[in-house]
């Protein structure tokens, strides 16, 4: 076994170096975009046709994927996510669901989009279900995780979050949102997408004049200043999921004894609601959107997650259903 140790040390060294390089390069995409090096700021907002929504539309729900995300389209989303979208649309018929924004790019550029390493990311994505592919896919997750770090960094966050917020606002307009209509917008962020949702919220509010609510599905959240501009933050977390606790651990503004942080102020003011989703995990067979895993009461995980989100919409008046009709439909 003596031969194994040097190999493992070498492997760990290579992995650490790769992570360091990815981390060091991670702010460049957002900063280069802002500086105009990639020409991203002059995107044409009218590039796609605008949809006209029915007058019964009560609110808009924007889905921001987790750090395993690859592209905001059918090929990029997992089957669980696509099934989740179907369930949400069925339960919230008067809510427009938007899921074409990639939260780990400041210019909504998917990993297989126009970027130098598109070939590498595509190859990793194509191998994810093959032997060893999941291990290699950690590179994609590391890359996206570093973008979450950029979002939460007070030096880079304002630029990054402005970029993502701008893409969300543009997507909402393409989906029929009328600026200054005060139609509520809900940002639903999964895992690292939760932090990006929180960071982008002030821009969405500023650009559209919209009241913004954030739902974090197991989000790893920092003490982001964006929390001061939102209506409410709902944080959904499973009892078997320890990953969101990283946010509470790594960001000093979330430590309970740091009195005047944005997070602690919001918590004191009752603008944060923590919701226990039951024995769900962050990833794997028992995660929040799992279709086969069931709770002790027999309900599928994905159905319970949708039910909790629906409940938030009902309580906040973000959909036409009332609490009574929701209860009677569940009983029926």
């Amino acid at each position: 076994m003596g031969w194994l140790l040097p190999q493992l040390v070498t492997l760990a060294g290579v992995a650490l170096t790769a992570a360091l390089i990815i981390a060091w390069c991670s702010p460049f995409e957002a900063l280069g975009w802002w500086a105009g090096w990639s020409g991203g700021l002059d995107d044409d907002v009218g590039a796609l046709p605008r949809v006209v929504q029915p007058s019964t539309t009560r609110s808009y729900l924007v889905y921001l994927t987790g750090i395993g995300g690859f592209a905001p389209n059918e090929e990029g989303y997992s089957r669980r996510e696509l099934s989740f979208f179907d369930g949400l649309s069925a339960q919230l018929p008067d809510v427009v669901l938007v899921h074409d924004v990639f939260p780990f790019s400041v210019s909504n550029n998917p990993l297989d989009g126009q970027r130098q390493l598109a070939g590498l990311w595509s190859w990793l994505h194509s191998r994810v279900r093959k032997p060893g592919g999941a291990l290699l896919y950690n590179l994609v997750m590391t890359r996206n995780m570093m973008q979450v770090a950029v979002s939460s960094d007070r030096r880079y966050g304002p630029i990054y979050n402005y970029g993502v917020g701008r893409e969300i606002a543009q997507s909402l307009v393409r989906h029929g949102y009328r600026p200054d209509s005060y139609t509520p917008v809900v940002l639903l962020g999964v895992s690292g997408g939760g932090q990006v949702a929180l960071g982008a919220a002030p821009t969405v509010r500023a650009l559209l004049g919209a009241p913004v609510t954030v739902i974090s599905l197991a989000g790893v959240l920092s003490d982001d200043p964006g929390i001061d501009t939102i209506e409410h933050l709902y944080h959904l977390q499973g009892s078997r999921d320890r990953v969101p606790l990283l946010g509470a651990l790594l960001f000093p503004g979330r430590w309970p004894w740091v009195g005047h942080s944005n997070w602690n102020r919001a918590q004191h003011d009752g603008r944060i609601t923590l919701i226990d989703t039951g024995p769900m995990t962050h990833m794997g067979e028992h995660e929040y959107l799992a279709r086969r895993a069931v709770l002790p009461n027999g309900q599928r995980h994905v159905d319970h997650t949708i039910e909790l989100i629906e409940k938030i919409f009902v309580e906040e008046g973000l959909c036409a259903r009332t609490q009574q009709s929701a209860v009677s439909s569940q009983q029926g």
Binding site: V45, R50, Y162, A169, V173, A206, L207
Partner: peptide
């Protein structure tokens, strides 16, 4: 200091003009 206000104002106008 980073001033986003002019950029936000410009983008607001673009979105409203659409």
């Amino acid at each position: 200091t980073l001033d986003l206000s002019s950029e936000v104002a410009r983008e607001r106008e673009r979105l409203r003009a659409r």
